[in-house]
Design a protein around this nucleic acid. Structure first.
Lengths: 220, 220
DNA sequence: TTGAAAGCGCTAACAG
DNA sequence: CTGTTAGCGCTTTCAA
């Protein structure tokens, strides 16, 4: 049994198919009785509007792409989950793309998503230096928002942590309590996040006149 | 600048647009010189095929839906990641839907995905008793595979853990070493997985004649 | 090897 | 209020 179309239910409800379109989309200008008849027929035939066809004419997919570098890093599922929730509330769905820190994959996902005609793109760039990516993205005339990390000097909107501030606040919190010495543990200084937090940490130390020998920094 | 269509590049390459279609899809029956000319024009105009339009005529979206109950549970990202990788290898992308254990959301995602005309559905059912869901899904004439957990008595294909076997193997491993007593720690016995593992654990205990007082079972 | 034309399922004028 | 018609961008016969 092939999927029912608007025409099938038009026939069943004895109306033109534009009327069906109006009815199922809750547009004005349909007599209540007619609308009811149409909806019943739709229900009976188990009609499901064809998304791609709609997208084609509406020029809207109600889909946004989310590109993340590493879904197995718990930060990103958390992020994805929150985004998904907001998206759903606005009747949008998410096309989730996981690059595994592979910049090549990242690019091909961007191509993929533009061909899929997503209405917008959320991207957590995998490269620390994503300036070139940013430039390419500009040509796309596609709404883009960076999350988690933004290319230096981008003119696009972004939503990121203020790592420096975070490191500073954490350090200040301890220093305010008058601790004798203070430590910083970071997984790797190749991470921009950690580098930022460390910078904040140092700034706090300066501010609180915490001498270098009172600072223990451990980076793997 | 609105997106280029097949017609724009037809004009630029001085061919009919059906020829462009053939060229960009690498179909036979296009002279090499023509194909080249077309591809150049496409490149120059930065042509991107319109996915929805293609899907409409091809009746194929190259997308599969993945419905999971809880993306913040590390098991599911891991699963999603693996699935995504395989999907991508077959030129498929994933529409990821996170239900948050909400059966209502689960259902609406199914509706959503069928309207989006996904080519198939992977679903990790959130309810332990998903028989009704299974029945509804049957009417959909959409390829469905269950993952992680399958409704009892489903006729659909599924890929799940053998929890009983797992619990049994773990217990046997310890019992074989002749331990005096053996423990089982599970977060909650409402989890089918944990219940299954516990069953396996008990079976192993029987088999190894491990008396009840040598078994310590902790369930929160 | 190429082009013309029909049609995928739907929305949106435009008429009645 | 309802129907007719013209596309959306693309693939695919069918002719030339």
């Amino acid at each position: 049994m092939t999927a029912k179309t608007i025409k099938d239910i038009a026939k069943a409800a004895n109306v033109s198919y534009s009327t069906v379109s109006r009815a199922v989309n809750n547009r004005p200008g349909v007599r209540e009785a007619t609308r009811l008849r149409v909806m019943e027929a739709a229900e009976a035939l188990d009609y499901r509007p064809n998304g791609p066809a709609r997208s084609l004419v509406n020029r809207k997919t109600h889909t946004i792409g989310l590109i993340i570098p590493d879904i197995t890093n718990p930060f990103f599922p958390e992020l994805a989950s929150a985004i998904e929730e907001r998206a759903q509330a606005s009747d949008y769905s998410l096309m989730l793309c996981n690059t595994g820190w592979d910049e090549h994959k990242e690019r091909s996902f961007i191509t993929l998503l533009t061909e899929r005609r997503v209405d917008g793109l959320l991207i957590a760039p995998s490269a620390h230096t994503a300036e070139e990516l940013d430039r390419e993205l500009l040509r796309l005339s596609l709404p883009v928002v960076y999350v988690s990390h933004a290319p230096a000097g981008t003119t696009r909107p972004y939503v990121v942590m203020d790592d420096v501030l975070g490191g500073m606040m954490a350090a200040e919190h301890l220093l305010q309590q008058g601790v004798g010495s203070i430590g910083f543990i970071g997984a790797t200084d190749e991470s921009v996040s950690i580098a930022g937090r460390l910078a904040g940490f140092r700034r706090a130390c300066e501010r609180y006149a915490c001498s270098p020998d009172q600072q223990v920094v451990v980076l793997e």
